[in-house]
Amino acid sequence: MKPVAFAYYRPQSLAEAVRMLREHPGSKPIAGGQSLIPLLNFRMARPEALVDLNRIPGLDEVEVRGQRLRIGGLVRHQQLHEHPLVRQHWPVLAQAAGEVGHWAIRNRGTLGGSLAHADPAAELPAVMVAADAVFELVSADGVRQVPAREFFYGYLMTALQPDEVLAAVELPLASGTSWGFAEVARRPGDFALAGAICECRPDGTGAVTWFAVGGGPERHELVVAADANERAAQWQDLAATLDAQDDYRRHLAAVVAETAYLRSLGRDGQ
C-alpha cells in the first residue's frame, strides 16, 4: 500500500465523468494508469480523488467518419497496434503504438492517457503532431477541438484543463503521402532516446517530426534531398536546432530521421 489515500469514482458516462471532475477539486482522471499509478506509488502525484474513465461506454471506438479516422481516448495501445482500420489508414500510427512499452503495458495504457501525460519521449503525441490530428476535449461546459500542433506546450505540459477529458482524436485520411517511423531505445520497450516520423509527399516536399530530443514533438518541414550526403547535412543542420540533452541525442536524431526517411520510401534503412 503505497499511494496516498484518495476517493475513487467510477462514472458510467462521459457527462458524469466531467461533472465529477468539476465537482471534486484535486481530482484527476485515470485511464490505463500506466503513467499515473507509478507516480502514485512513489507519491509524486497526490490526487484527492480519481475519476476512473475505464467503464465509460463508447470511448474505445475506432471508426471512419467522412474523411477522418476517429479514435476514442480509451483505445489501448495494443488495440491501436492491431486495429484493421488503423493499419489500413494510418499504418505508421499502428507501428508506433507497437513500440510503446511492453505487451502488458500496451494491454492497459490508452491513447488519451499518453497524449494527456505528454512525456517528451512518447511515440503517440509525435504521430498526432505529424498527422495533424485534432483532439476533442470535453468538459462540463461542452466540447472544444484543439489541433495536436497547438496542444503540446512542452515537458508534460499541454492545453488540457484539469477538468477536461480527451475523448477522441481525429486524423485526416492519408492522401498520397508516404510515412516512415524509427526510434532508438536502449532495450525494447524502453522509452526512446530519439525517434522520428518522416513524411514525404509526391512533389518532393516533406517533414520530419522528432520525439525524445526536446520538450515535446518537434516538426520541421523541408524539401528532402535525394542525395544521401546532402540529406545527412540536412538532418544534421536541423538536429543542431533541437533543444536536446546533448550532442549524442542530436546525432541520434539525425540517424532516426534518415532511417524514418528510408522507411517512408519502402527501403529498410539499416
Binding site: 467510477r10 494508469g33 500506466q34 499509478i37 506509488n41 476512473d52 502488458a104 503495458i105 494491454n107 492497459r108
Partner: peptide, 19 residues
Amino acid sequence: CTVLVDGKPERSCLMLAVQ
C-alpha cells in the same frame, strides 16, 4: 507482478484492486 486480466497480461502493481 504480471497477472492475466480477462486473459491478457497486465501489471497488477499498476492497477487498483477496485478497478
